[in-house]
Design a protein around this nucleic acid. Structure first.
Lengths: 242, 242
DNA sequence: TTAAGATTCAAACGAACGTTTGAGCGAAGT
DNA sequence: ACTTCGCTCAAACGTTCGTTTGAATCTTAA
């Protein structure tokens, strides 16, 4: 029973618990009383330290994404410095972007698989304040990596690259969310490796490494797939009348 | 008997409105009063016709997924009948599985892009009753297609195929969800094509076709990507910089 | 016409929600 | 010693939630 409580003790305990509960139940289905109860702090502590429930979710993400954004930009800077003006290889860009994220899943101090799962599940949340928040947090990094891919694949139309970046983000987001129907049906996949509900399976490090090992070749294969042959809509032109 | 005006009028109006509102706000953030208000029916109508809010969501999905499951199984039956015992081509399997779904997005009578977006956003919902429901609905179809892929790719380890099916589901789910950060940052992608917020952009047919045209080559490229070289965890212990 | 069943309706239920309040506490600062 | 300030606390705020109720209204068939 350590009675020693400082300011950051309460703040960080709220953030850690909220991160886990938001991941397990989603934002709307997680109440302030669930969070403060599990964190063993007073109900009013969240509003005192963060201002509101929305601001708490933002802070949960901000403390992780600020590290991730910095790391992703540094990785790209490093690669471009080594290349000395030449375009990067697509595999290098993907490794810097997705590898950096998946390496967060290996380190519990950076949130581990708990944060990765939360991120994957929250990226498809339709709530407006969430989407606005992510848009602001991701803007700079997305733009830098998008331009790097444009230079790495000069023969591919830019719109096509954006589409495939979109698909790659989706495959990763869904994979780290760990809610796939396959996992329940086949008993195989991320959930099987993670041992989500209590049972101590392999640790976050092993889970994240195995996932990265499977995901990266898939993403690269998709990015380099042959372009669709027909330019746009096929022959028949069907217009919804009125 | 055939005149089902009163009953199915209310029932179907509730289902249509609920489908749209669940898509726009998510399950938890959509209240019964929002649904019954927009559908112009009494608040008690949902509990009378469906029993509960959870049962309403299940019915919203069931009326679409029963059609989708039937169509997907028939498509696979047709292909296997034509092949006469020989393994199918992976592209045929993907076309039957993903093409059938994306064709739902073209037809407003089958839910159109509204249902596709709802499906993509709900597949990552952590609520237990939702995941159990999807597991039951998808079990048979997933199993059939999984086996078809095993036979189509006899040289690829089965675990690897399951992983890649997992990734393909993710890319599709995320793409049809239409909540990608790319759309807000770059103003390009599904949301741009869809004109989600009121403005009449291209119809569902055009949106779904363009999406399918871009997604299918990506999925095929990912599925056929070279296998990861190392069997499991590498030797080096890499520490993320802080 | 009339009785029975199906559907709609306004109103209310208890519970849970996010947030606010004002008193109380303990360790600095002067 | 006394004030200040950061923080915690129990209690309550007003609102909204999903659900239930019982009477009113409509539909249907004998």
């Amino acid at each position: 029973m350590s009675d020693q409580k400082t300011t950051h003790d309460t703040r960080d305990r709220i953030l850690d618990i909220a991160e886990r509960l938001f991941m397990e139940n989603g934002y709307e289905a997680t109440s302030m009383r669930m969070i403060t109860g599990a964190a063993e702090v007073n109900l009013a502590a969240v509003n005192y330290h963060f201002g509101s429930k929305e601001a708490l979710l933002r802070e949960v993400f901000r403390r992780r994404l600020s590290w991730l954004n910095r790391e992703r930009l540094q990785a790209l800077d490093r690669l471009e410095g080594q290349a000395g003006g030449a375009p990067l290889k697509p595999s290098q860009i993907l490794e810097a972007f997705f590898g950096t994220l998946l390496r967060m899943g290996e380190d519990e101090a950076l949130g581990g698989m708990t944060f990765l799962r939360l991120l994957g599940r929250t990226l498809t949340d339709p709530a407006e304040f969430i989407r606005n928040f992510f848009a602001g947090e991701y803007a700079e990094v997305i733009d830098r990596y998008k331009l790097a891919l444009f230079r790495a694949l000069p023969d591919v139309p830019k719109a096509e690259i954006v589409w495939r970046l979109h698909f790659m983000l989706g495959a990763m987001s869904y994979a780290i969310a760990g809610t796939d129907v396959l996992q329940v049906v086949t008993g195989c996949g991320l959930g099987d490796l993670a041992g989500e509900s209590g049972s101590d399976g392999p640790g976050d490090l092993v889970v994240a490494r195995r996932l990265a090992q499977r995901l990266m070749p898939f993403l690269l294969g998709g990015l380099r797939a042959p372009l669709p042959q027909s330019i746009d809509l096929p022959s028949q032109q069907q217009e919804p009348s009125r």
